[in-house]
Simulated assay, not measured.
Amino acid sequence: MTQIATARPGLTDLGPIAQLRAGKLVRRLPQLYVGLVLYGVSLGWMVRGDLGLAPWDVLHSGLIRHVPITLGQAVVVMSFVVLLLWIPLREMPGLGTISNALVVGFSADATLALLDRPDALGARVALMVGGIVANGVASALYIGAQLGRGPRDGLMTGLHRRTGVSLRLVRTGLEVAVVVIGLLLGGVAGLGTVLYALAIGPLTQLMLPWFTVAVEAPADTQTSALGGDQR
């Protein structure tokens, strides 16, 4: 017998259809896409700051040195490559998952087309710090809309569920791996990479309660608390 749906104030673990049936789409859909666009903008700011990128973007920046595509296109391509890895993990994508795979990369390319690298170090530091903070806001907006995990986050949670290894250890292992591969490909790492790794989890955790939309979910639905890079 199906249990009565109830409003959940925290994050809920819903399937792709349940996400759309959970109500408040008038708020959740705009919040999802504002968050995804801002995520791409924050990536563009960090690129133009030229003081180091987020771990997955170290990989993307290395990839474009060998393949004739833009950074945003590399984000899109790698998103769908990661989604292929969801298949053996039996992760289910939602609207937010597919939107994430497309919107973040296009938004990053648009930002890079409009913004040049400043010469002044102070301006570059401001772009790096602003990019990290904006990324935290974007993550909280996107996650709080409760419309599906990002490709890379789903890979993390899928590996955690299948292996039993802690989320923190899985995330650390994935990020170390992509940074190493990115550096081998000629990617850009630096101070921004370290600051991002240290700050993004606490920033997202701080702001997530501000933007999490309470949704209608079955009474037996589990709640979760995800943080960090949610792409």
Rank of each mutant, 00 (worst) to 15 (best):
R152D: 09
L71R: 03
R65S: 14
R168K: 14
L102Q: 11
L38N: 08
A199T: 15
A199K: 13
R162T: 09
Q31H: 06
Y39P: 07
M46H: 08
V178G: 05
L51T: 01
I98F: 07
T193K: 10
Q31R: 06
Q230L: 09
G186K: 03
M207Q: 01
P218F: 09
Q3H: 14
S139K: 00
I69K: 09
R8M: 10
A101L: 15
R124P: 07
M207L: 15
R8E: 04
S99A: 15
S61D: 15
I98H: 06
D220C: 05
M92N: 08
P202C: 12
V215D: 00
W56D: 04
P93M: 13
Q73A: 07
G62I: 10
R90C: 05
V137H: 05
L183K: 02
D116S: 07
A120H: 12
L169I: 01
L167S: 06
M128L: 11
I98Y: 06
A177R: 02
L191V: 12
S99Q: 08
Y39A: 14
L208R: 13
N135Y: 12
L32V: 07
D119N: 10
L29Y: 03
L84W: 03
H60T: 02
L115I: 15
Q3D: 14
P93T: 12
L147M: 15
A214K: 12
S99R: 05
A219F: 06
A22S: 15
T70E: 01
I132P: 04
D220W: 04
A101T: 14
I4Y: 00
L63I: 15
Q31K: 05
G187D: 02
I181V: 15
G72Q: 10
A123S: 13
L85P: 14
G158F: 00
H66E: 10
L53D: 00
L167I: 12
D57Q: 05
V41S: 02
G173W: 03
G35Q: 00
A110I: 02
V47P: 03
V170G: 02
R90M: 04
L51E: 02
L147R: 08
L121K: 08
G52L: 08
L115F: 13
S224G: 03
M207E: 05
E216R: 10
V76Q: 14
G227I: 05
G144F: 04
G154N: 06
A7E: 14
G94E: 13
P9H: 01
R162L: 11
L38I: 11
L195I: 07
M207I: 09
R21A: 11
Q222V: 03
R28E: 09
G10F: 07
G187R: 00
R124V: 09
H60G: 00
V215F: 00
